[in-house]
Design a protein around this nucleic acid. Structure first.
Lengths: 248, 248
DNA sequence: CGCTCTGTTCGTACACCATACGAACAAGCT
DNA sequence: AGCTTGTTCGTATGGTGTACGAACAGAGCG
């Protein structure tokens, strides 16, 4: 190898000749979009806004992405990366492994609540596939048959996703700096209760002035403990299914 | 009562004097919006489109609704009505009752898949409250404490919602008349698999030509049986939680 | 060095969106 | 018949995604 090659890397990591280096990268664009959504909500994410943030013309983005839909797929996969469990940290037992993945997903969703309602899924990117791989890994040693394994993964994923999305929606109202929506909702609920059509709800809330009971209830719904208890119930159910009837 | 009052109904069902009858109703508007979404997808629902369908001017809608957001709340509550179990048909035992409600919700979601991804919730309308009432009714006789009851409802609701939303997203691609998105996804997945980074997924799919294995897999994910099995697992878990440790 | 090629950037234009504003209309009353 | 006011809706504004094609600039070559 001659000296003039010293400062160059392996051929694979070098750009092929004749290929101009673009100013931006897809990852960079996706990250900026996520930052905007985190800071100002998903509806603030527009092609113009992203381009401005990057100091580029709006149409420049369309060189990296065919449609805004594609860009959202990039955002989604970028977030999918953050639900991956660090390699080596995945327990070998199926139950703690599933538990670990579920918590990791839950945390990621809580960090970017807007993603749950705004990014419509099924655009499996590289990181989403890694998540699937990791999930299969989690149940690889589980005493379930093929169908049982997929069922188990599906149930946990569905629960985590469903829970997260409902909590996220709730939190948007609960933690907003504007308390009016919450007040309006309580007022409406009280009106409905006054009709007497809802004895069970009334019984649950108890008698007397329930101005705080409502908010307490809302906070309870968003308690992480509730998520964990539900997760345990589901894992219990999966375990029971196995011990009760090993061969279906 | 004099004869001239004969043809009039009870005072309560009469319009108060001085109140002009509007041409449309909120319910009517919401129903039209839902029809459009069912027929052409949610993105086809615009204020102009709804108004056209009703034979009204666009701005007329704003007399019935403050914003489009409000209109979506109306749509949501209209759909919430369809997940209500007919009164009298709700079993008294908590497990079949929860099962019944879950299935009813699942069916409603399957009928209007777009609603899951497009209508962001927490706008509890009258019908949503009736659903909550019905849910509390379902667990009224269950041997859980207060927290346990709410937990149980939450877990089932979360699972149903999470499952439905993922199936709905899947179905959009699976049942679309355009098979290209599906093919593109398979092609991409195969490329990823070729890297050897996904041994678990490969093991699951098995060797050889898997052109059909993919679609079979997708169909399996959307099988109603999978939903029901998951529901049973969760109800098992809830039941176990009770029999194992009656007092918490 | 300048020329050419082409990948990359982006200005302009269009169709569509939600909706603010205020004018026009008509139903029910006196 | 005239008035009041709830209801309808035309127009206009500022936003959106993106099609089109012109302008720019980096790399290779002579």
């Amino acid at each position: 190898m001659s000296t003039r090659d010293q400062r160059r890397g392996l051929i694979w990591s070098e750009r092929a000749p004749g290929e101009r280096k673009p100013k931006f990268t897809r990852e960079q664009i996706a990250k900026v979009a996520i930052e905007i959504a985190d800071a100002e909500g998903f509806e603030a994410v527009s092609m113009r806004r992203i381009a401005d943030e990057l100091g580029a013309g709006t149409m420049t983005l369309y060189h990296y992405v065919r449609t805004k839909e594609d860009l959202m797929a990039l955002m989604e996969d970028e977030l999918a990366a953050s639900i991956l469990v660090a390699p080596g940290e995945l327990p070998t037992e199926w139950r703690p492994a599933l538990h670990r993945i579920a918590i990791s997903s839950y945390r990621a969703f809580m960090r970017h609540p807007w993603a749950l309602t705004s990014l419509r899924g099924v655009r499996v990117g590289p990181n989403a596939m890694r998540h699937v791989e990791q999930s299969f890994m989690a149940v690889a040693n589980a005493p379930f048959d093929q169908q049982g394994k997929v069922d188990a993964l599906g149930i946990v994923d569905d629960y985590v996703f469903g829970h997260a999305i409902r909590v996220a929606e709730n939190a948007e109202q609960l933690d907003g700096d504007d308390a009016r929506p919450m007040r309006a909702m309580i007022k409406f609920a009280e009106q409905m209760l006054a009709t007497g059509e809802f004895p069970q709800i009334e019984k649950f809330l108890g008698p007397g002035p329930r101005t705080q009971a409502w908010e307490k209830f809302a906070r309870f719904m968003n308690d992480t403990g509730r998520f964990l208890r539900g997760l345990d119930v589901i894992l219990d159910g999966l375990e029971a299914r196995f011990t009760q009837r090993p061969k279906k």
